[in-house]
Amino acid sequence: MNQPQTPAELRQAIRRGEFTGNTSGYAPGFVQCNLAILPQAWANDFLRFCQLNPRPCPLLAMSDAPGETGLPPLGDIDIRSDVPRYRIFEDGQLREEVTDIAHLWRDDLVVFALGCSFSFEEALIADGLDVRNISEGVNVPMYRTSVDCAPAGPFAGKLVVSMRPFRAADAIRAIQICTRFPAVHGAPVHLGDPAQIGIADIGRPDYGDPVTIREEEMPVFWACGVTPQVALEAARPPFAITHSPGHMLVTDLRNSQLAVL
């Protein structure tokens, strides 16, 4: 299979089961989204959690009504098949990962699409910065921290962050660039000593893959859309679906449409 170039081509390849990998670096220029799918009875509290924690949970779209499988603002999407890999949770526990959820779909499910840091990576690269997970061809490293999110109903938990290493001058430039993209996590939440936010071993991410951190570089951390998965584990809804970390919903929305000038 030739590498898909447009979001629609990539979603079609995913829908056919021909692409099941992580989506970092694919369909450059277009917004990728984190995913959370919950029963209607749990949706209002989760929406409030997103509103109270906009850095890790920037809400870009949600279902018009329970049971809807499309997200028209984001493109011609069938949410049951257009994500490369899904995680299935029962009572807050991860039960399995699958590549299609049509057999699990229910009429009471509500879909939330949240902004993803893959979107601002394009702007960093365009400015000449080395985004290490892209240059090394791996998934971005992600870590659970000791930083509390604001609770909403049963949803609570610790912030998850993604990390990219930069020299000090490049870190400052990355902050300036990402501040323009609040809809996809915005500016970093921490840089430097990972222990200050509860990360014991920078070489062992909780999700994704480790990347090279050179001697003259510091780790720079952004709020991450895997945070809702931690909140789901704490809330323990009887049933929930998310994306598998790094396996995002690729949309027709352009990254440039999210920039704040």
Rank of each mutant, 00 (worst) to 15 (best):
A187D: 09
F19W: 04
A183V: 00
Q40H: 10
P188V: 14
L71E: 03
D82Y: 04
T179F: 05
Y207E: 13
D45C: 08
A156P: 04
F181D: 04
G186W: 06
V189W: 06
A223W: 01
I77W: 06
P72G: 12
W42V: 01
S117K: 01
R87M: 15
F112C: 00
P66F: 04
A234E: 12
S146P: 07
S162W: 03
G137M: 13
R254Y: 05
Q229R: 02
V110Y: 03
A36P: 04
R173M: 12
M248Y: 03
A168C: 07
R106N: 14
A240D: 03
G75K: 05
L109H: 02
P228T: 10
N255I: 09
Q257S: 14
A223F: 07
P39I: 03
P7W: 05
F221S: 04
A187E: 12
N44R: 11
G75L: 12
F155M: 09
A126Y: 10
Q3R: 00
D91S: 15
L74R: 02
I77A: 03
P228S: 08
R180L: 06
R48D: 10
V83W: 00
G25T: 14
G192D: 10
F112N: 05
N255D: 08
M62N: 02
G92K: 10
A231F: 08
A235D: 05
D209W: 10
G25W: 11
R132K: 14
A183H: 03
C116H: 00
G246F: 01
I213P: 01
V147P: 05
I199M: 11
R164Y: 02
H243Y: 07
Y86L: 08
F30Q: 00
A187M: 09
R236H: 09
F166S: 05
N34A: 07
A8I: 10
A174R: 00
M248P: 01
V220T: 04
S146E: 10
P228E: 04
P141D: 15
L261E: 12
V98K: 01
A123V: 11
N133L: 15
